[in-house]
Amino acid sequence: MERSAFVYIMASGHNGTIYVGSTTDLVKRIFDHRNGTVDGFTKERNCHRLVWYEVHDDINSARLRERRMKEWKRAWKLREIEGLNPDWDDLYDRIARP
């Protein structure tokens, strides 16, 4: 992962509860969500599956995209997920491997 920031979507399961976030260290952040070391929404609602992510050049553009996506209707977010990952596979293993 060469770029410096990411926007991501976590889900509780296929078509389940979703969460949009941003980070500069995607592997670590998703690891924390998956292992429940991050208190809050994803832990409470079992959003442990990485179903979508997007690479950005810097954290400011990633945060702006995150804020905009959080205002989107659910249907728009689902369309974004299914455009990249129609089966809602957990993408963590793909990003965590060197």
Rank of each mutant, 00 (worst) to 15 (best):
D93C: 10
W52T: 00
D32W: 06
M10N: 00
A62M: 10
A75G: 10
M1L: 10
P98N: 14
I9V: 15
D89Y: 08
R65D: 12
D90C: 11
D57F: 08
N46L: 10
E71S: 13
K28D: 14
V7N: 06
G16Q: 08
E82R: 08
A5I: 04
F31T: 05
I95T: 09
R97E: 15
N60P: 00
D57W: 07
T24K: 14
S4N: 15
R34E: 09
E71N: 13
D32R: 06
C47L: 03
V7S: 08
A96G: 07
F41D: 13
E44I: 07
E2K: 15
T17V: 14
W76D: 13
R74L: 10
H33E: 08
G40R: 01
M10V: 01
W72E: 05
G13S: 14
R79A: 11
I59L: 13
N15G: 08
R34D: 05
E82M: 11
D32Q: 15
S22Q: 13
S22H: 11
D90G: 04
K77I: 13
S4F: 09
L26R: 00
G36P: 00
R34N: 08
E66K: 01
K70W: 09
K73I: 01
I95C: 11
V20N: 09
V20I: 15
C47G: 00
H14W: 07
R67H: 12
T42W: 04
R3M: 09
S4Y: 10
R74A: 02
E66I: 00
R3K: 15
R94T: 10
R65C: 08
A62C: 09
A96I: 07
I18H: 00
L50I: 02
D39P: 07
V51T: 04
V20W: 10
L26F: 02
N35T: 15
V27L: 09
R63C: 11
V51R: 02
H56G: 00
S22F: 03
L26P: 00
R94K: 12
P86D: 13
L91N: 04
M10K: 03
A96N: 15
K28W: 08
M1A: 14
E66R: 02
S12T: 09
I9E: 01
D58R: 06
V20H: 07
L78M: 11
I9R: 01
R94A: 11
R45A: 06
N46P: 05
T24V: 12
L84W: 05
W72D: 01
K70Q: 14
K70N: 11
T42H: 03
D57R: 08
A75S: 15
L64E: 14
D89I: 00
